[in-house]
Each structure stands twice: as structure tokens, then as C-alpha cells.
Design a binder for these strands. Structure first.
Length: 196
DNA sequence: CGGATTTGACCTGCGC
DNA sequence: GCGCAGGTCAAATCCG
């Protein structure tokens, strides 16, 4: 069974995005928030665009702290202080497609128009049973050619994509603080990873 | 027919 | 307390 036929979103992303192409800009903006102690991994918009263009989205990521901009709310029963960590990862990706398939299977559960943005925000949950990871997808109001994708939470299972293709775990269940996003399972040099 | 998507209603937090 | 905005729910609808 071909994964492409099972996941049309993945098909679009991986087929249309050629890492060797100068038009491919992967995740030039990345923010990781972690409650209560938040850190971010990001590049500023302008520099990221430049560097992403220069490097053709080589996956280069710059880290900085953002302790003074903690406005992230840990809602829906996620506890701030103790056991459960509210982890947020934000990607800003130049793409005509709003759906950035990361190998996981998402179920759309909401769509909402947001203030100061002409484009609606889409809400997705990981459709894997027991996995509570969510993501929001919206077009950048300042530049609609960019897509803002925000992940909340940590997958408690492996990516079906990676399990299927690479037989390598995308998420290590033994390490809840580790995350990896792969833009394409076929582009092994195209992945961003974070392991605290 | 079952799963995914759509979309209006509802809930919650925050600012005034 | 009220209104607004963001987030979620769930029934209706779509689609393979």
C-alpha cells in the first residue's frame, strides 16, 4: 500500500515541495514554547526569509529565549506547574498549501475567523487514539504566501509515516520532551529536530 | 456506511 | 457585569 494513496496531504506536500528547488522554503520560522519555562527557537521574519532563501531551507534554526513574552495559556486541563507540560511549536512556512503534513494524521475539528487576519484559522487534532496533540493552521496575515502552523502538545506515539517508511521513531515515547518534524520522509536531509 | 469535514452554537478567558 | 475574541463541540453534510 502506497502511503501517498493513504494520505493525500502528504502527497501534496512531498510531491510539490522539492528540497532542491529554490522555491522550497521550509519552516523558516520556528517557535517552541514550553510551560512554565518557555523557550523559543526562532528566526526573525526578515532574517529568516533571507537566510531561508540563501540556504534554500537548509533547516538552519536559531535559538533564543523568550521568557518575557509568556502569554501562552495552558488550557483544557493541562497543568502548568507540575506533571504535564504544555509544549508549543510554531512554524512559519512559505507554501501555497496550508496543510503541512508531518507524517501524522490530523482530524479537523474547527475553523475560526481571527481578528486582524483576512484568513481563517483551522484547528486540527491528532486522530491517533489517545493522542491529544493539536495544531492550528492559518495564513500569515502579513504575507498570505506564508502559512503559520502551531503544534501544541507532544505525540505519545510514533508517526505512522516514519514507522511506515523509515522504521525510525519520529517521537520517542520515552522522552516526552523530544520532538521532530519531518517535512518529507523522502527528504532525509529535510528535518528539524529538538531534543532538550 | 463509516470516517472526515463543515459550520453554527456554545464555552471560557480577558479587558474595560 | 458585559462584550469580544479565541477555542471547542457536535450535528449535519460530504465523500470514498
Amino acid at each position: 500500500m502506497d502511503y501517498y494513496s493513504e494520505n493525500p496531504n502528504y502527497t501534496q506536500f512531498s510531491r510539490n515541495m522539492d528540497p532542491s528547488s529554490s522555491e522550497f522554503l521550509l519552516s523558516d520560522y520556528l517557535v517552541l514554547d514550553e510551560c512554565p519555562d518557555q523557550y523559543s527557537f526562532s528566526q526573525s521574519t526578515e532574517s529568516s526569509e533571507k537566510s531561508a532563501s540563501d540556504h534554500h531551507a537548509s533547516g538552519f534554526i536559531e535559538a533564543r529565549s523568550r521568557n518575557n513574552t509568556n502569554k501562552m495559556k495552558c488550557k483544557n486541563g493541562v497543568k502548568k506547574n507540575n506533571e504535564e507540560v504544555c509544549q508549543r511549536v510554531e512554524f512559519r512556512t512559505k507554501s501555497e498549501l496550508e496543510i503541512m503534513d508531518d507524517g501524522f494524521k490530523w482530524r479537523k475539528y474547527g475553523k475560526k475567523a481571527v481578528k486582524n487576519s483576512p484568513n481563517p484559522r483551522n484547528y486540527y487534532k491528532c486522530s491517533s487514539g489517545g493522542c491529544t496533540v493539536k495544531k492550528r493552521v492559518e495564513r500569515d496575515p502579513k504575507d498570505s504566501s506564508y502559512v503559520l502552523t502551531t503544534y501544541e502538545g507532544v505525540h505519545n506515539h510514533e508517526s505512522p509515516c516514519v514507522a511506515h517508511y523509515n522504521q525510525m521513531p519520529l517521537m520517542l515515547p520515552s522522552n516526552n520532551n523530544a520532538w521532530t518534524l519531518q517535512a518529507s520522509a523522502h527528504s532525509s536531509n529535510f528535518s528539524s529536530s529538538y531534543t532538550p
